[in-house]
Structure formats: C-alpha cells, structure tokens
Amino acid sequence: MTLLRVEHLTMRFGGLVAINDLSFTAERGHITALIGPNGAGKTTVFNCITGFYKPSEGRMALQFGDPAVWDEIEALTERGQRGLECRAGSLFLLERMPDFLVAQKARVARTFQNIRLFPGMTVLENLLVAQHQPLMRASGWSVLGMLGLPSYARAERAAIEKARLWLDRIGLTERADDPAGALPYGAQRELEIARAMCTDPVLLCLDEPAAGLNPSESAELARFLRTLRNEHAISILLIEHDMSVVMEISDHVIVLDHGVKIADGPPDVVRDDPKVIAAYLGVEHDEVSQVEAEVGL
C-alpha cells in the first residue's frame, strides 16, 4: 500500500538544479531510506516534502485511511485543491501546502540534520509543544483555557501522560524537568524523534538521525526505529550516511546522486549496484567493474 507518491519532483535554485525529475514511492509501514553522497539533494527532497521549499515542478501525494481515495488524485489535481479529507481517508497534495499544514493536516513529522529542539524549554515542554494542535483545540483556542474549565486540565494531563510514555521509551523520564539544551548530544537526537512522534504522524522523516552517534548508540537507534515501525505502524523516510543502520533496518532504499535517482530497490540489491558504488566512490561505473575484476570480486 502506497503512503507517499513523489512524481517528477524538480527543484531549482536559480540556475542550480538540486533535484531533477525525481519519482519514488514510500510504502505504508515501511522504512524507506534515501541515501547518496553529500550534496546529492536528499535534504532538499525532505524540505520539499515537508513544505519548507516550494518545488519548481512535480507532484507529491500522501494518503492515509482507505486506499480507495487514491483514485481521487487526478480530480484533485485538476480542481487545484490542496487535499481531500473524508471519513474513509485523506489525500493531500503536499506541494500545495505550507509547511505547518503539512505537519498539521497531512501528519508528516520531521527531524533536522542539525538538531532543532527548544533548548531553553524543558524536555517535557518540548513534548507538549509538539501536541500544540490538540491542546489548542481542548483549550478552546485559549478562551476556555483562560476560564479554567476542567476539560482543558484533563486534556493537559493526558498530554503529559503521553509525553511521559515517550520519555520512558527513550529513557529520559528522570530528566523531564531539565532544559533540552542541557542534554547530551545523543539524548537530544532521541528527544527530537520523540517530539516528532508526539504529533501522531503517519510519516516520520528523519534527517541523519545517527549523525554524531557512536556505533553502540547507532545500533540502539536502529532498534528504536524498528520498534517504532513494528509497534506504531509508522512509516519512516530516512536520510542516513551510516550504512550499517540503513542496510539493517530499511525495507527499501532509494539512491540519489546529483539530484537524480540512480537506484531504487531492496537494500541488498541496491548495495551491489555498480552505479551506486560508483557514485559513492566518485568514479564512472564501468571503472567499478574494472576495479572489482582486479580485486577478484
């Protein structure tokens, strides 16, 4: 079942083509990894999907609920609408939505390459800000909350409970009342993921979650991501350079080089693709077979 369908995505900055005619899909309940050398345009893809950049061309559609709503996609594109929400399911055209609506309505959550927590707020507050939308509704857009109605207090307690659940999972309950900026690096990375999860996403976009972690922390992260997928039925889009993590947990790998897709498939197939190896080694791919022959592969 397809969750996200990216078609002919192109992003130009002035004369520079960062992404060129990229198409791929991400399946529901899968971990889809987006890999490629530095400057391949991976983060740009994320920024387009999450609405921070407006793509120059292309369509990005995200669907959850009943897959039958996929049939509406052409009609939706024709009508020039942002998306469709009905009881059966929802379908959104992400390129038409501003960043905060992508998170709010299409339920795409993300983390950042250089961690973006709220460093002066406590760990708990970070997780409550992530639940802004439901809490805002519960507080009657602050009016009922100002009046001190019990319904808001109940909603806040539930939100704190949910935050505590996630804190237990990443082992940060003890530090709930410390400022996020005071946490060690690895804990900040995990907190950022937990914060994203608190928005109840259907798609979680992780931008190099293992960057700066040591091997055992990376392994722990891989386990964590796998449990997220298995227990919470969440789909993950992952940018990562740590191949041990990628190969271990991905269901599907897409390889980008210079803004173009050069390979797409299950991890073990992609791993042996000469084009991919060439891209990583920075040589033309016929040279690779030559080198491989020389070393007896």
Binding site: R116, V129, Q133
Partner: peptide
C-alpha cells in the same frame, strides 16, 4: 516561547 526558541522547529510541528 517555542517560537522564540526555534521558529523552524515550530513550523515542523504544525504550529
């Protein structure tokens, strides 16, 4: 306050 701390993160959380 979150806005003061990091506006981009706010947007990524649907605010």
């Amino acid at each position: 306050e979150a806005l003061r701390e990091d506006e981009i993160a706010c947007r990524a959380l649907g605010i």
